[in-house]
Amino acid sequence: MHPVRKQRLILVIVLVALSSAAAGFVTYAMRNNMNYFYAPSAFAAGDVPFGQRIRAGGCVVPDSVVRADDTLDVRFAITDGEADVKVVFDRILPDLFAEGEAAVVTGTLQRDGTLHADQVLAKHDENYTPPEVAESMGANANCGDGAGI
Rank of each mutant, 00 (worst) to 15 (best):
H2G: 14
P3L: 11
P3Y: 12
K6R: 14
K6M: 07
Q7G: 03
Q7M: 14
Q7A: 15
R8G: 05
R8D: 08
R8P: 00
R8F: 09
I10C: 03
L11H: 06
L18Y: 01
A23D: 04
G24T: 08
G24V: 02
F25T: 04
V26H: 03
V26I: 13
Y28E: 09
Y28K: 12
M30F: 04
M30I: 00
N33D: 06
M34E: 09
M34W: 02
N35I: 13
N35L: 14
Y36R: 09
F37H: 04
Y38S: 03
A39F: 01
A39D: 00
S41W: 04
A44T: 01
A45M: 03
A45I: 00
D47R: 09
V48N: 01
P49W: 03
F50Q: 12
G51H: 06
G51E: 05
G51R: 08
Q52C: 00
R53V: 10
I54H: 06
R55K: 11
A56W: 00
C59W: 05
V61Y: 08
D63A: 12
V65F: 03
D69C: 00
L72T: 11
D73M: 13
V74F: 03
R75M: 06
D80M: 06
G81S: 07
E82A: 15
E82V: 11
A83Y: 01
A83I: 04
D84V: 14
D84A: 14
R91P: 00
I92W: 11
L96H: 10
E99A: 14
E101C: 07
A102M: 14
A103G: 01
V105A: 09
T106G: 05
G107Y: 06
T108A: 12
L109V: 02
Q110H: 15
Q110V: 04
R111V: 10
R111M: 08
R111Y: 10
G113K: 11
G113Y: 08
L115D: 10
L115M: 15
H116L: 11
H116C: 03
D118A: 10
D118E: 13
V120C: 06
L121R: 10
A122C: 01
K123P: 00
K123D: 02
H124W: 06
D125A: 06
D125L: 07
N127T: 11
N127D: 12
N127W: 14
Y128D: 06
T129I: 10
P130S: 02
P130Q: 04
E132G: 02
V133E: 13
V133I: 14
E135Y: 04
E135N: 05
S136T: 05
M137C: 15
G138A: 03
A139N: 06
A141H: 14
A141I: 04
C143H: 10
C143T: 14
G144K: 06
D145V: 05
G146R: 10
A147L: 14
A147K: 15
G148A: 10
I149P: 09
I149E: 13
